[in-house]
Design a protein around this nucleic acid. Structure first.
Lengths: 192, 192
DNA sequence: GCACAAGTATACCGATCTGTCTATTATAAC
DNA sequence: GTTATAATAGACAGATCGGTATACTTGTGC
């Protein structure tokens, strides 16, 4: 089997375990057992557990952005875009998005929580993901709202509502959070 | 020194460490060194590390609710209430609320992230805190909005914006999140 | 002043963690 | 076919973890 395959196996299985249980709760040996890969192979591909974690964050970032971009593709109007956005979140929250695994909140929020130091590389990568999301919103809203102030305002609202409903769904167990958030966003765009 | 004092010392120091570094990143010995308490004393008060963690969650819940209640005391009008609410969050995010420690996001979100199983007692306690926050909002909005549908709608918006700006501030490093969120909430109440 | 409860300091136990090392087998390139 | 690379399984090291046990000291109530 090619090297890249083993590496990918490791990243995918590690990501699934880290997301389901948290980073510190999962040991290297558990990752190896789940992946069916020898320990030496892991350390041939990654210098340390930290390097594996970083690869998992990057993988999750790419996977989430890909999924989210597909689901929010249609920006033919503000109403349509917002509709699709919160429908996507609702599907994720209620485990109808298998690409993202069983819903356990935001992987980046969860991971950042386990690393106190702001300077840590891992926390920086988590921050990068949120910036990617913001840029995605900005890109999709660009053709829909000409006025920059209004556009930035809606971008901020969508960021806040997205983060809010993911965390309310996860910690409060409010599985209706995305459905609740949707009309709050549409009420805002109706004024534009 | 009285028993209660030692117990309180342990909870306060453990809470500070857990919040700053994450639960699994802090060992019992570190808590003991920071508290200046012997190991046997800890296990005289708590059956296990898990029991100490639970006590920390309850302590944080009480402390946060107390602080938040004080800061959002004035509900003479919707505008005033919202103003105070987001000013309080802004103070916390920018480390002007010493009672809450150096800002590291929501302790309950962070803690829940480290426990994958939904059935775990710790995750249940985190959920309880969010319910306490929601009830606080409902109580303060009760005399201000008579229509239940509108009141529930604003409660939901405030919950989502609060969670949203705490997590955007923490993970994205957007220290202006609360200031950004405020006008989004006031835009909503202007319609009522 | 005595007895008992509680705290201190520290050694220790078994488990688990990350990471290394050895020895062997499979695979791919030429 | 030979050779170099990569994978395997697993023992092992060194550190750290949560939790227990021991021996001693302090403090409090009657």
């Amino acid at each position: 089997m090619k090297q890249i395959d083993k590496r990918q196996q490791l990243v995918e299985n590690a990501l699934a375990l880290f997301y389901a249980k948290g980073i510190h709760a999962v040991g290297i040996n558990e990752v190896l057992a789940q992946s069916g890969v020898a320990k030496k192979t892991l350390y041939n591909h990654f210098a340390s557990k930290e390097a594996l974690i970083q690869a998992c964050i990057i993988e999750r970032d790419q996977r989430f952005i890909t999924w989210f971009t597909q689901r929010c593709h249609d920006n033919s109007s503000l109403a349509v875009f917002v509709e699709h956005l919160f429908n996507a979140l609702d599907d994720w929250i209620n485990d109808r998005a298998i690409e993202l695994g069983e819903f356990k909140g935001c992987f980046f929020v969860n991971t950042a929580a386990e690393y106190g130091e702001h300077t840590s590389e891992i926390k920086q990568l988590c921050m990068q993901h949120k910036i990617h999301i913001k840029k995605l919103f900005e890109k999709k809203l660009q053709p829909l709202i000409k006025d920059k102030v209004q556009r930035d305002s809606l971008t901020a609202l969508l960021m806040l509502l997205k983060e809010g409903c993911i965390n309310c769904a996860h910690v409060m167990g409010d599985k209706q959070a995305a459905i609740t958030a949707k009309p709050l966003a549409t009420a805002f765009i109706d004024k534009i």
